[in-house]
């Protein structure tokens, strides 16, 4: 049982949680994740660790509502507990002084890119960050990132903040402006695939963080296997970060859709339950 000490919405659909997990806080490095289960009937889902505080013994995770479990997590508040939190899992990000780095965070991917961007800065890199989202209210952590990043750019699909258009447009501008030694891109599969295609043309080393379906997170099930460099890899123990130019994004997308119909059914039922609770409250005069 891990207590939530802080819970705060970063956008209408993305929430930040600070959780008591002293052992994990002490051990985790940028790029690693935890597996979380919130109830006895719940599923196990992987969530990247966004930050940690060794003194307070806490880790920070950022969750976007997508399916039933993530939507249930969004309803948790400070003082609530999470049944199971296990980690830190996966390999830490390889950090070195590359020189000029660009870190791209798409939507909730920003939370995952955040610790690595910070670590890159600490290693002596010049770090430019591009945050991309559909609309301004979906841009998260802009202040936290501005604190350490050398340059911060924002792109939105609808133009409500920063540059209107895709995140890759801004990346291409930066590539045109000067030499870039390293790119880290974390976001939706189409976003990471687009970044990989672009940087491949210019021969820029690029790393992405994959988020496939996982079960145990320790290499035991093989459900998270992905095609990287023409080989099967287990993202949980071999990753989650890989050379973007080697990743088969089509296979990643295809495998993430295995339970699409089940997830919708589950989410639908979850919404019905939510409405039933609301209705009950209304009827009892609350």
């Amino acid at each position: 049982m891990n207590k939530i000490v802080e819970a705060e919405f970063l956008s209408d659909n993305i929430k930040k949680f600070v959780i008591e997990a002293p052992q994990i806080a002490e051990k985790r490095k940028a790029g690693q994740f935890v597996v979380v289960r919130i109830s006895q009937t719940g599923e196990r889902i992987p969530i990247t660790i966004a930050n940690s505080d060794i003194e307070k013994g806490t880790i920070t995770i950022v969750v976007q509502g997508a399916g039933k479990t993530t939507n249930q997590i969004l309803q948790l508040e400070a003082g609530d507990t999470i049944l199971d939190v296990v980690g830190p899992l996966g390999k830490p990000t390889h950090i070195e002084n590359y020189g000029n780095c660009v870190v791209l965070g798409g939507g909730v991917g920003t939370a995952i890119a955040f610790p690595t961007a910070k670590a890159l800065k600490k290693a002596g890199n010049y770090v430019s960050v591009i945050l991309g989202a559909k609309t301004s209210s979906h841009i998260i952590l802009r202040d936290e990132i501005s604190e350490f990043a050398d340059e911060v750019y924002i792109t939105t699909d609808d133009g409500t903040e920063g540059l209107k258009g895709l995140i890759t447009v801004k990346l291409k501008d930066l590539i045109m402006e000067g030499k870039i030694d390293f790119v880290l891109a974390i976001g939706s599969i189409p976003m990471m695939a687009a970044v990989a295609d672009l940087t491949r043309t210019y021969g820029i080393k690029t790393v992405v963080s994959l988020n496939p379906i996982m079960l145990d997170g320790t290499g035991m099930c093989g459900g998270c296997r992905a095609r990287v460099g023409g080989k099967n890899v287990f993202v949980c123990v071999d990753g989650p970060e890989f050379d973007a130019h080697e990743v088969d994004f089509n296979v990643l997308k295809q495998r993430n859709e295995i339970y699409k119909d089940k997830e919708q059914l589950s989410l639908h039922q979850c919404n019905i339950e939510k409405q039933a609770v609301l209705l009950e409250k209304q009827q009892s005069g609350e």
């Binding site: 009937t41 719940g42 479990t69 339970y259 089940k262 997830e263 589950s266």
Partner: peptide
């Protein structure tokens, strides 16, 4: 036991 249990 899906959907009583969440794992599909």
């Amino acid at each position: 036991k899906f959907p009583e249990y969440d794992t599909p």
